[in-house]
Write a protein that binds this DNA or RNA. Structure first.
Lengths: 161, 161
DNA sequence: GTCCAGATACTCGGATACCAGCTGTCCGAGTAACTCTGG
DNA sequence: CCAGAGTTACTCGGACAGCTGGTATCCGAGTATCTGGAC
């Protein structure tokens, strides 16, 4: 089980954007430079965030990305889903119906949900819940508490050309 | 985020094996036939289970696989880890130290753990806990409750040549 | 001085290659059962 | 009939391809700004 690398990038970028004046758009190139990431690929990830409204994008000079809504209303689950997709980690292919197993258990199994799939689904739900309970604002606040100067320092770096 | 397909196969096979007399080994070919799976590939997955002791394997005639310990002591986490590996889903690459971000936050960030990584780690822990709480025996029992005849039917199918 | 049209430069967004890792397959090593022969 | 060595057939285990999907890149569409000139 592996999450796409872009999820990490996207979360960090969202935290940084939460510290920048909402009327100021930041180009992907600048976001990438801050963490020394490949510009074009980060741009692709930010596109994904834009498609679901996590960030708002604008083309042209003075264009770039800004948060699409208040950081309190952006959860880690939102970001993870936008980048990594919403497909379940455990995909039940219904092998209990294939081959002799299907003819043995027969129609009795058709009416019940797959026990194995259900167990994994429950676990995944716990994972999703944890991520849905953590907002970008909350994470940004935790970082600020550990390093109070961080927001200002980040804002200043993005302000200067 | 995606789990390898072999995890589903392995869990179903473990449940089936839990219904079969422990002194009877089942060849990979027979296990595969029951669910109409590719024999060689399933064998590969069973190997992985064998390496960590979830199943015991024996070569030659009358050889095959059997459970390596009581099904009560085999958890879904054990199986998932054996097949899919134990690597964390969210791998912190430490981008907050790369580029200008590193020089800005500076050594203050070196002493603290990454907030983002910690949040994802917590979520993943919840997932792991859920899977570690579910044993093969428990799942097999749930299946049996929904279809009391299943264990006998499965045992009989594997007994006849 | 003011307004407007054209040029310009910048940024996103999707289309396009590249590559790692999962999926699937094959063959050799090892082993237990079977067979045949000799006592 | 019994014992033992050789043969046989079976099964695991790891080494070997194929291919899907994530990683990375490039270029075109669109837009706000800037520039120059006319009024």
């Amino acid at each position: 089980m592996k999450l796409r690398e872009g999820v990490e990038w996207a979360v960090h970028c969202c935290i940084n954007l939460s510290w920048i004046s909402p009327d100021r758009a930041v180009p992907a190139a600048r976001l990438a430079a801050f963490h020394d990431l490949p510009t074009a690929y980060l741009n692709k990830q930010m596109n994904a965030l834009g498609r679901v409204g996590i960030v708002a994008s604008r083309s042209g000079p003075r264009g770039g990305f800004r948060l699409g809504r208040e950081p309190e209303r952006i959860t880690l689950m939102d970001v993870a889903t936008a980048i990594d997709g919403s497909a379940q980690a455990f995909l039940c292919t219904g092998i209990r119906h294939h081959g002799p197993a299907g003819t043995i258990t027969g129609p009795a199994a058709d009416r019940t949900t797959c026990t194995v799939a259900q167990a994994f689904s429950t676990a995944e739900l716990a994972w999703r819940r944890q991520l849905a309970d953590r907002s970008i604002a909350e994470l940004a606040d935790t970082v600020r508490r550990a390093n109070p100067a961080a927001p200002d320092q980040v804002r200043r770096w993005f302000d200067r050309p």
